[in-house]
C-alpha cells in the first residue's frame, strides 16, 4: 500500500457536519447533471407565469393593479411546493438502489443522506425563485420591496421550502416506489396550491372551499409573500406562515429521520 492514509481527528459534531456537506455536494451534483430536471427548474415556472398571466390576466380582477403583480407570489409559492417534492423522489431513489446500505455501513452520520437532499433542494428552489422574479419583471411585474423586506422574503421562503422538503422526505421513505411518490405528492400539493390565494382571491370561492382556502398554510404563505412583494395588507399572514412552517419542520424532521432509520434497518 503506497498511500499513507490520514484520518481526520475531530469532534463527532464536526464530522457529522462534514458528512452532511459531502452529501449536500452529492445531491447538488445530481441536480446539476439531471438535465431534464434542470430544464424544468428553469422553464416550468416561466411557462406557468406566462400562461397564467395570458389566460387569466384578462378575466380575473384583483387588487393591487395588474394580474402579474398579484400572481407572482402565488406562482413562487406553488413552484416551491412542487419543487420540494423532488426530495421525496431523491430519497425514494436512494432507497430503491442499494446505496443507502453502503452509507449505513460507513462510520458516517445517519441523517446526512436526508440533509443532503433537503439542502440541495433548497438551492434548486432558490434558483427557481430568482428565475421567476426575473421573468416576472420582464413581463410587467413591479414590486415595492425594501432591502429589509427582501431579507424577510428570503427567510420566509427558505423556511417554507425546508419544512415542505422534510415533509416530502417522509413521503419518500414511506412510498413503495418512485412512481408512488410522484402520485402521492401530486394529490397533496395540487389541491393545497390551487385551493389557496395563489391564483384567485379566496372570497370568490364557494363557502366550504373558502373556509379551507383561507385557513391552510399555502394561503398564509402566499399572502405573506404577496404583502412583501407588492405591499398588500399583511395582517397575520407572516405569523401564521412561520407557525405552520416551524410546526411542520419540528414534526417532520425527527419523524423523517426515525422512519428512514427504521426502514433501512430491515
Amino acid at each position: 500500500m503506497a498511500v499513507k492514509l490520514v484520518f481526520r481527528k475531530q469532534s463527532k459534531f464536526i464530522l457529522a457536519l462534514s458528512d452532511s456537506l459531502v452529501m449536500i455536494r452529492r445531491s447538488t451534483t445530481h441536480i446539476i447533471r439531471n438535465t431534464d430536471q434542470l430544464l424544468g427548474t428553469f422553464f416550468q415556472p416561466i411557462m406557468f407565469l406566462v400562461l397564467f398571466t395570458a389566460v387569466f390576466g384578462g378575466a380575473i380582477a384583483t387588487e393591487g393593479g395588474s394580474y402579474i403583480n398579484f400572481l407572482l407570489a402565488g406562482i413562487i409559492v406553488q413552484t416551491l411546493a412542487f419543487g420540494s417534492t423532488t426530495t421525496a423522489i431523491a430519497v425514494a431513489n436512494d432507497l430503491k438502489r442499494g446505496i443507502v446500505d453502503r452509507f449505513r455501513a460507513l462510520p458516517m452520520s445517519n441523517l446526512a443522506v436526508l440533509n443532503g437532499h433537503v439542502v440541495s433542494d433548497l438551492f434548486r428552489n432558490g434558483i427557481s425563485t430568482v428565475v421567476m422574479i426575473i421573468a416576472g419583471l420582464v413581463i410587467g411585474f413591479r414590486p415595492t420591496v425594501s432591502p429589509l423586506e427582501w431579507l424577510a422574503l428570503i427567510g420566509l421562503l427558505a423556511l417554507f421550502t425546508l419544512s415542505l422538503s422534510w415533509l416530502s422526505a417522509i413521503l419518500g421513505v414511506v412510498a413503495k416506489s418512485v412512481e408512488g411518490v410522484q402520485w402521492l405528492t401530486f394529490v397533496i400539493i395540487f389541491p393545497l396550491t390551487f385551493a389557496s390565494s395563489a391564483f384567485v382571491d379566496p372570497s370568490t370561492m364557494s363557502d366550504w372551499l373558502r373556509v379551507f382556502a383561507e385557513n391552510q398554510p399555502v394561503t398564509h404563505m402566499v399572502d405573506a409573500v404577496r404583502s412583501l412583494l407588492i405591499g398588500t395588507p399583511m395582517g397575520d399572514a407572516a405569523m401564521w406562515s412561520i407557525v405552520w412552517s416551524v410546526g411542520i419542520l419540528v414534526v417532520s424532521m425527527p419523524l423523517a429521520a426515525w422512519l428512514f432509520k427504521r426502514k433501512t434497518a430491515q
Partner: peptide
C-alpha cells in the same frame, strides 16, 4: 462491505464515488 447490488452512485463519476466514500470514512 460490497453488497450484491453495486452500491455506487450512478450520477457521479468513478473518481467522485471513491473520493466521496473516502470523505465519509473521514479521510482527509
Amino acid at each position: 462491505l460490497t453488497g450484491q447490488s453495486a452500491a455506487v452512485d450512478e450520477m457521479l463519476t468513478g473518481r467522485e464515488n471513491l473520493v466521496m466514500m473516502g470523505r465519509l470514512y473521514h479521510l482527509t
